[in-house]
Design a protein around this nucleic acid. Sequence first.
DNA 1: AATAAATTTGTAATGATTACAATATAAAAT
DNA 2: ATTTTATATTGTAATCATTACAAATTTATT
Lengths: 140, 140
Amino acid sequence: MKNLKMDNIRDYLMTNDIKPSYQRIRIYEYLMNSYDHPRVDEIYKALIDEIPTLSKTTVYNTLNLFIEKGIIHMVTIEGTEVRYDVDISDHGHFKCDVCGKVYDFKADIVEIETNLGESFIINQKDLFFRGICPSCSVKN
Amino acid sequence: MKNLKMDNIRDYLMTNDIKPSYQRIRIYEYLMNSYDHPRVDEIYKALIDEIPTLSKTTVYNTLNLFIEKGIIHMVTIEGTEVRYDVDISDHGHFKCDVCGKVYDFKADIVEIETNLGESFIINQKDLFFRGICPSCSVKN
DNA sequence: AATAAATTTGTAATGATTACAATATAAAAT
DNA sequence: ATTTTATATTGTAATCATTACAAATTTATT
């Protein structure tokens, strides 16, 4: 997807009005390199070895800040499962009910026609599919 | 939307392999007559006066059973907020970020083109929009 | 170097959901 | 009709994710 190095992440955060602390850079970097829309716990566990002082509160604070500034999206397919996505371009998510993996897919969400009047101001559009992925359907 | 009476709900539940206990009938009836995609807590509070012995666990059990049997859908727009919807036809949800209300809207979700191969088995499609609703945008 | 501002951290509090065992109800068998 | 069996409901406790908050640390400013 993207391939920013440390300095570029720093610049990217600053451009978006976020002071680039070490923790923030590392959390963004991790999101950037993970393709499975990680949960808070996964992010925390992945970084705690390298940043031994890291607090889970910091992960929450940072993710909420990123969302507020619009550089990541929250992905909620099932109610109890909150995931995060650095890819804020127009795309959908598919979750496999068997293995739990979340796949990205392309879709022209912008083009979807609805009966919402023009007086509705739409800020975000999300498309979620659920089912069984190819590798799981082969196994059965 | 639908307009089933007591006896019809009973039949409807039985058709879907659900034994129609009093609690299950009343919970389904409440969902049927509410247009705002209620949360568990709202369902519980709405029924506790009429069913004083009602337990919140029963509400959870019942909703999970309904989902399992496919007669309701879980609606998750934001991670921490789980709502339920008896309307299992093809439609989208719009949530107002100001007043929090959830609106239904029509959309041809089935027609959306994606790059998911045919080997993906899709069981459910959901479309979520967020923004500001007409009555809230007028106020500002 | 001193002060102020912002960030991180750890602990405690909250709230939603589930696990589980006991009770109550309904269905089946005698 | 009574006993037995299965199913559903209930209440309490446990779990888990998230937030609140204040103290400690780091960074920026004077």
